[in-house]
Simulated assay, not measured.
Amino acid sequence: MGVCGCGKSSVGGRLAESLGAKFLEGDAFHSPANVAKMSAGTPLTDADRAEWLLQLMAEIRNARETGASLVLSCSALKRRYRDLLREGDPELRFAHLAGDRELIANRMLARINHYMPLSLLDSQLNVLEPLQADEAGITLDIRKEPAQLITDILNSNP
């Protein structure tokens, strides 16, 4: 989890590979209308995200019910979004990739062919609710190399 440009897709993909798990890119589940809205620099509302979150929760539930290992990259910016995702699997754990605005902005500017404009970074930072003490997960510093982030995630499992 985390704001745009924090490395969710790259770290998530590598984590899934190291676990032999299926990887789902949460952005792929956004509706064309949501993608168009974000591409135009308009932040999504809770209503815009509702169907998207339900689809992701269904994927999580399906993985739990079938015994499949799953890594999902998803912003999960608000506690209530994470609570909904946990309805798919109460044992769901989050890895919050956190960093300062300047570093994330620089990473976003270096991306090629991504619909999320830099102008949306501040809106995401403004609504971000970091993991709370009662939420299963870990907060990671994205200044670390991806391999170290993955090691930290793997070592944080109960």
Rank of each mutant, 00 (worst) to 15 (best):
L84V: 12
G41H: 11
M116S: 08
A76K: 03
L72T: 03
L128T: 09
Q124I: 06
P130I: 06
I138P: 03
N34K: 04
E51Y: 06
L103A: 08
H30M: 04
E65G: 09
E129G: 02
D141R: 06
L154C: 05
R101T: 10
I112F: 02
P146H: 03
L125S: 02
M1L: 13
A133V: 15
K78Y: 09
L92Y: 00
A58M: 10
G7E: 01
L103D: 04
L24W: 05
R64V: 02
V127L: 12
L44V: 08
K22G: 08
L24V: 15
L19D: 00
V11E: 00
L140C: 02
I138G: 04
M57V: 08
L85R: 06
P117Q: 12
L72W: 10
I112P: 12
F23A: 10
L24I: 15
I142A: 04
A133R: 12
D83E: 15
S75H: 04
I60T: 11
Q148I: 10
L131C: 14
E135R: 08
F94Q: 01
T151Q: 15
Q124V: 13
L19A: 05
L44R: 10
R61F: 05
A33R: 14
S9Q: 02
T66H: 12
I104N: 11
A40T: 09
D152Y: 00
V127E: 11
H96D: 09
L97H: 13
G67I: 11
V35N: 11
E65T: 11
L24Y: 14
S18Q: 14
G137Q: 02
L118D: 00
L44W: 05
T42R: 14
N155V: 09
F29G: 06
P117K: 11
R82Y: 06
R111S: 02
G2H: 03
S31E: 07
A28L: 08
V11Y: 03
A136V: 08
L92S: 12
G67M: 07
A147T: 13
K22F: 00
S156V: 07
L97S: 12
E51N: 06
